[in-house]
Amino acid sequence: MTTTSSASGSTPPAGRSRPFFWEEAADDWRSAYEEGRRPEFSEYVARSLRALREGVGREAGTVPAMRSVHRVSLRDDGADRLPDRYVAEHCTLTLFGLHQHTASEPVHRPGVGLGTACLLLRRSEALTEAAVERRLIAAATAQDLHELVQHLQRLVPLLQQAGVGLDYTRLFREMTAWHGPDRDRVLRAWGLQYTDPGTPAPAEGQADEETDGHERAPYWVTFEPGSPDAGAELAALRSGTGREPGTVASMWPFHRTRMASEWRNKGSLTRDLAAEHTALTLFARHQQTHDRRMHVTANSPGTAVGLLARKAATDSEGKAATAALERRFGHLLTSADADELAMHLRSFTPLLNRAGVGLDYDLLRTALRTWDDPRRPHAVDRFRQRWDRDFHTTVTASS
């Protein structure tokens, strides 16, 4: 099994008097190695690992041999229901037991989240990219903790075979949060870790044209309308409409956002991620039913709505339709923030789709992430002026 450097991670945080068992097991092995002895687990750890495997598929608190390895205490308060933390620890222990089984080195690796582990599994080529994504997405869309554990029970042996470890302390916390308000952050962290492009994040305030050029092209640039998977991909992206960015597992394979590693691990919701999420969902709704790409470079929203207005001018309603579009476009230009801008863009998307008018989604993403950015106070004025000029230039241009 391949060794990766990591901190011990065995020092318990405030409020916990003893490290978790998986932390103790890693320290047990490491102590033997550092003392020059044959690196192996002690009899206590080996015996406890056997007890953990006995608990696979069994209800928390019903396996006597596991009681000594629990660190979450049970209070004798007469409650019928076990605490969520105790159940989460039971699940984490059994997964750790499966993962550590037959592995010669510790599989608890501080700092390696589930998304990162799946990324390493994909890079190991032990499974195809599609197979890894299916397993990660299945885990992320689990309806409850029991279903999540079932998916992870099938995943961790694959991690073990590929020599990929996992931060079990982090996994325990994520399982504890699975039914609470922090679940979105857990999901976003998994997705961001898995889609890590392996390139540095832009410095704060760095303009797009200043980046190093290694960023993967966004999905709307590489989209192939005639590909066999095009319909399914667009449907996956449309499922993210109105949902919190980064939490829609079916969208993860299409994200390209760069971000510092510590932000990924925290599941941070950044302007870049929110802008890409919105642009992806808009593009998916715009692209459907078309056999040519609806991402058209240099077609700003002003140009696109101007083309709609020109088309409307030839219809029976004529000037009234053009005036209505101009009013709606004026509301878009006066959007107070990126959320309002996204709302108005969503209202135009069906019109652009029906008319077959394209839009520059690179430009759109940049606008969405800088529209109300206090670090770039003049960006919104530049967009408003350019788009307004594009609109009137397009409307008045001769056919």
Rank of each mutant, 00 (worst) to 15 (best):
G55V: 04
T11M: 03
S6A: 15
R81M: 13
V87A: 01
T62E: 09
Y86F: 14
G61E: 05
E54V: 05
A25P: 01
S6C: 13
G36Q: 00
S48I: 01
C91S: 14
D77H: 07
R47N: 07
E40N: 03
E89W: 08
P83M: 10
G55Q: 01
R81S: 14
M66P: 03
A46I: 06
S31R: 10
D80A: 15
D84Q: 08
W22Y: 15
R37W: 02
R30L: 10
F41G: 00
A88Q: 10
G9K: 08
A14W: 06
T92L: 09
R53Y: 06
G57W: 04
T62Q: 11
A51W: 10
E54L: 10
A88C: 09
R81K: 15
G78R: 02
S10K: 12
S5E: 15
R81I: 15
M66Q: 08
Y44W: 13
V63R: 07
P64E: 14
H90I: 06
A25T: 07
E24Y: 05
L95V: 12
R30P: 00
E59H: 11
D28Q: 04
D76I: 10
R50T: 13
R37G: 07
A26E: 00
T92S: 13
A51N: 08
Y44C: 01
G15F: 10
E59M: 10
E59L: 12
L95W: 07
H90Q: 06
P12V: 08
A60D: 00
R85T: 14
S73I: 14
T94R: 02
P64S: 13
S6G: 04
R67H: 14
L74I: 15
M66R: 09
R47C: 02
G36K: 00
A7M: 02
H70W: 09
P83V: 12
V72S: 02
R53P: 00
A79D: 15
W22D: 10
S6R: 14
